[in-house]
Structures are given as C-alpha cells and as structure tokens.
Simulated assay, not measured.
Amino acid sequence: MMCGQKTSLDDFDVEVFMDEDIKQNIEKVSNCSTPEDLADLKSHLADWIAGCGIPDIYTATLLDVMRIRGEIVSHFAFHRVASMIQQFVAGMDSCGQFWQMVKRCWKQFLPVFTNAGNKLTRNSFQDLFTIGWSPAGSNRREEEEATIFQWEWWLMAIQEHEVDHTFEELLVFITGADLLPPLGFPQSCNIDFYDQEPGMRRIPYASTCSLSLYLPRGVANEDQFKDLMNDALKGSLGFGKV
C-alpha cells in the first residue's frame, strides 16, 4: 500500500468502540494535518500507536497519517479480537457445525446476534406482564383494578412523553436489563400488590431476580401514582430488590 493511499477504513465510525480513550486517540490521529500536529502526536501517542502494531509511527510523515489511522482501527476492530472470535466460532461449530448454519441463514439469526434496536412501546411492554390478581369480587381486587388503571395510564404517559421516564428505564428497574433478550425472558414478568400501612408511604419496588414489580393497592389518583413511580425509579440504587 502506498503512503497516503486511502483504505476502506477511512470512514469507519469509531463510535462503535466503547472505550473513550480509544475513540479520543483515533480522533487525534484523524485531526493530524500539520507538522506541528504530527510532532505533538509522536510526543504523546507514539508509544500507544506502536503498541497497536505500528512501530513506524516514530518515522512517519503526514502522508502516513491516514494509513496509520486505518491500521489503528483495524487493530481494535479485527486483530485484537481475532483470537476470541476464532474461539467463539470453534465453540459454535463443535455443536454440529452450528456456526456454518448461522452463516448460511444469517438473516434469520440476525436478531439473535445483533441489537435490532427495536424501541419498546406501551403494547409490547404491557405484553411482558402477568398480573397477580386477588379473587374477583373481593375488596382487594377492586383496589388492584384501581391501581392497574393508573398503571396503564402511566404507560400511556410514557409513550406520549408526558412524563420524564422511558420504557427502557422502567425495564431496568424491574429486570436489570435495558433491552429485551433476543429469545425473551425465561419467564413472564409479574405485577403483584401490597397494602399501604396506615400512616406510612411505601413506594413501589421490584425484584430483578423474579422479574416482579410490586405496586400498592388502591391508588386511584393520577398524580399520586405518578409521584410514587417517580420516587421509585429516581431513588432506586444497585442490583436486586429495591
């Protein structure tokens, strides 16, 4: 490859890298356009670039900058993970050449191996849940129906952007996951209920292990339910039951 020749990685979107330092360093290489920039690059990043398998950075000229950027991208996008990918493929193929089937039918397997980016909606979110009702006709059942009416209103408010929450945020609160697993959860999520003790204000809570959300019975006021859920989501910390 001739110095200064463009590669197919020139337009590679470095935002796919999760490491901020990698993205910033590649950006510094991309912005190197003067002899002063190159001298500064060598002074601060030459050892890092050499560690990416590009030892000629120490003698590089401005004509080499785009090639070096492409080789850095290639290092982090392909070479550094090549052994892990090979091990993954070998493991898949050890199960009846399963990876070869994936390659042949890649469109069918695309939702399994990639994030399709499908946004949650009110309907798709509601479909995740089974409600643990009390017996029909009981006082508790009436109180639960009042709460679920407010729950459904609140989900609609999320969809219409009338409240400062998202379905993804709510999913994290209940399950610990910020998107639906490709094959779904191992069980349906649950909505169960609890009674508010007199003189006490107990906010809704969740158990991510059992995929359960617990709501108070008898909440018939929109503002009250909104405040309870806001305090639950904004005040929750850590993993587990909050």
Score class of each variant (00 low, 15 high):
C3M: 12
C3R: 14
K6C: 09
T7F: 06
L9M: 09
L9N: 05
D13A: 03
D13V: 04
M18F: 11
D19K: 03
D19L: 05
D21L: 11
I22L: 08
K23L: 04
Q24V: 00
E27N: 10
K28T: 04
K28S: 01
K28L: 05
V29C: 07
N31E: 04
D37A: 01
L38H: 10
A39D: 14
A39S: 12
K42F: 05
S43R: 11
L45W: 01
I49R: 01
P55T: 01
I57E: 09
A60Q: 11
T61D: 02
L63S: 14
V65I: 14
M66P: 06
M66Y: 05
R67I: 10
I68N: 02
G70F: 03
G70D: 03
E71Q: 07
I72D: 00
I72E: 02
S74V: 01
S74Y: 13
H75G: 01
F76W: 11
F76A: 13
A77I: 08
H79Q: 15
R80N: 07
S83Y: 15
S83F: 13
M84P: 04
I85E: 13
Q87A: 09
A90R: 08
C95I: 08
C95P: 02
F98K: 10
M101R: 13
M101H: 10
M101E: 15
K103R: 08
R104K: 13
R104G: 05
C105A: 14
W106Y: 15
W106I: 12
F109T: 03
F109Y: 15
P111T: 01
P111H: 02
T114Y: 00
N115A: 12
A116L: 10
G117Q: 03
K119Y: 05
T121F: 05
T121M: 05
R122P: 08
N123F: 09
S124I: 05
S124R: 07
D127E: 15
D127K: 14
T130Y: 12
S134H: 05
S134Q: 05
N139Y: 14
E143Q: 15
E145C: 11
E145M: 09
A146M: 07
W151D: 01
E152M: 06
H161F: 12
F167Q: 04
E168F: 02
L170W: 15
V172C: 15
F173A: 07
T175K: 10
L180T: 04
P182T: 03
L183G: 14
L183Q: 07
G184T: 05
S188H: 04
C189M: 04
D192L: 07
Y194T: 00
D195W: 15
D195A: 10
D195I: 06
Q196I: 03
Q196M: 04
E197W: 08
P198F: 06
R201P: 06
R201C: 10
R202G: 04
A206Y: 08
A206S: 15
T208H: 03
T208C: 01
L211H: 08
L211Q: 05
L213V: 07
R217T: 08
A220K: 12
N221T: 11
N221V: 15
E222S: 03
F225H: 02
D231E: 11
L233W: 09
